[in-house]
Amino acid sequence: MAKGKVGKTVETLGDYLREQRTGAQLSLRQLAELADVSNPYLSQIERGLRRPSAEVLQQIAKALRISAEQLYIRAGIVSPEDGVGGTVELAVLNDTGLTERQKQSLLDVYASFLALNASSTADRADEPSDEN
């Protein structure tokens, strides 16, 4: 039974990783070894079948000698728009004292606060003015 693609963002990530790997003249096996991940797992990431954790992305970025932030953006973890919480998200993702689950929980709470603040700002903008 074949699995479907995880999502468009991951497919884009996989294509980007493949381009970076071939540009670095590394085989899939060589990159897997350098990043300390299994060859089949890396292959699944490149094909868009698996969504890697921030920690795995960081290991792959280090092995490819590219920015982990670029991989976070490609994976949809960090927004590419300037000023949209990227610094907070990167700080959480780079904190070695947290588990992957704790990192994801913090990012989820942070995203919900941003969404709540955006909706309350929009609600206030829709209220009639008291000026006459």
Rank of each mutant, 00 (worst) to 15 (best):
Y16F: 15
R50Y: 12
L13P: 02
A63P: 08
G7E: 06
R50L: 08
G48N: 01
V56T: 15
L71H: 04
P80S: 12
Q44P: 00
F113E: 11
Q58R: 15
Q70T: 15
E127P: 02
Q25W: 04
T99E: 01
A54K: 02
E46L: 09
R74C: 09
Q104E: 15
A122D: 12
G83I: 05
Q20I: 01
L49G: 06
A32C: 06
Q70M: 13
A115N: 11
Q20P: 03
T22W: 00
D36V: 12
S105W: 11
R51D: 13
K8Y: 10
L64P: 05
A35P: 05
R21L: 03
A122C: 02
R124L: 14
T87H: 10
D130M: 02
G97Q: 11
G86P: 06
Y16N: 06
A24I: 00
E11S: 12
S53W: 02
S79Q: 09
V37H: 04
E55C: 00
V92R: 04
S105F: 13
V78F: 05
G97F: 06
K103I: 09
A63M: 05
A125I: 01
D82F: 14
Q20R: 14
E55S: 14
D126L: 14
D126Y: 05
P80Y: 09
L57S: 01
T9W: 01
A125G: 06
N39G: 03
E131S: 08
Q59F: 12
S119Q: 11
